[in-house]
């Protein structure tokens, strides 16, 4: 989705203005603690995956997304998921059981690995030139706009991983995942400050490119 969340290379957003890491608190307000914990705890009910969660945060008016603080976007995403999954309607509560603290600790320690069994040989090999397809569409994707149409080189193959474009629709799907290396010049022109940018991209985002591309 070509939304406000896709920020790579955007201008006029101002300085970084970091707080010192020795004094910045983990949470700045009590409500941020609550939103963080509510998001993780409701996620443990297993009614959505991380890509659905990201997509719910992205699907906001761009002005709203950019004006919100980070945890306001989490809150907006959580409210949307709960509404779309109809989890707050009156007679739905008996269908789900809240995780206990022990169960939550186990789930957090286990995480959610996204690696999956290989289904066939990968289409690309390390060192091969590839171009990122133009993918403008309304759904969730993890191919940033700033790299679409640009040519790079396969730097690493990571095996098969859950494919976000399908998983954001609740579908179980995996594709080969690569780290693709782009020169700074190919992305930003001759005055690029970055020598190289490495981006993790799934096979359906990529097409073969010629060596002189």
């Amino acid at each position: 989705m070509n939304g406000a969340h896709d920020l790579g290379g955007k201008h006029c957003l101002g300085p970084i203005a970091p707080e010192s890491e020795f004094s910045e608190p983990v949470f700045h307000h009590e409500w941020e603690r609550r939103v963080f914990a509510l998001t993780l705890a409701t996620g443990m009910l297993g009614q959505w995956n991380i890509d659905e969660s990201r997509f719910a945060r992205e699907r906001q008016h761009p002005q709203r997304y950019l004006a919100n603080s980070y945890y306001e976007n989490w809150l907006a995403g959580l409210e949307k998921l709960l509404d779309e999954k109809q989890m707050l309607t009156s007679d739905s509560s008996s269908r789900w059981r809240a995780a206990s603290p022990d169960c939550a600790a186990q789930l957090l320690a286990a995480g959610s690995p996204t690696s999956r069994a290989a289904q066939r040989a990968p289409a690309f090999a390390c060192g091969q030139r590839v171009r990122v397809r133009k993918l403008s569409m309304a759904g969730h994707t993890r191919a940033p706009a700033y790299v679409q149409g640009t040519t790079g080189v396969i730097a690493q193959f990571h095996g098969w991983h859950c494919y976000p474009d399908q998983r954001a629709r609740g579908l179980d799907s995996a594709e080969p995942l690569y780290s693709v290396c782009f020169t700074g010049q190919s992305l930003w022109g001759p005055n690029s400050e970055a020598s190289e940018v490495l981006i993790d991209l799934w096979e359906p985002y990529l097409e073969r490119a010629e060596n002189n591309d």
Partner: peptide, 28 residues
């Protein structure tokens, strides 16, 4: 707005307050 959502989720049994506290404790 956050308080209202938390209250509703607790009442519906979708989250437990001891679990919320444990999650915060872990990451804080």
């Amino acid at each position: 707005r956050v308080k209202a959502l938390e209250t509703l989720l607790l009442e519906k049994g979708l989250v437990r307050s001891d679990t919320l506290d444990a999650i915060i404790e872990t990451y804080e």
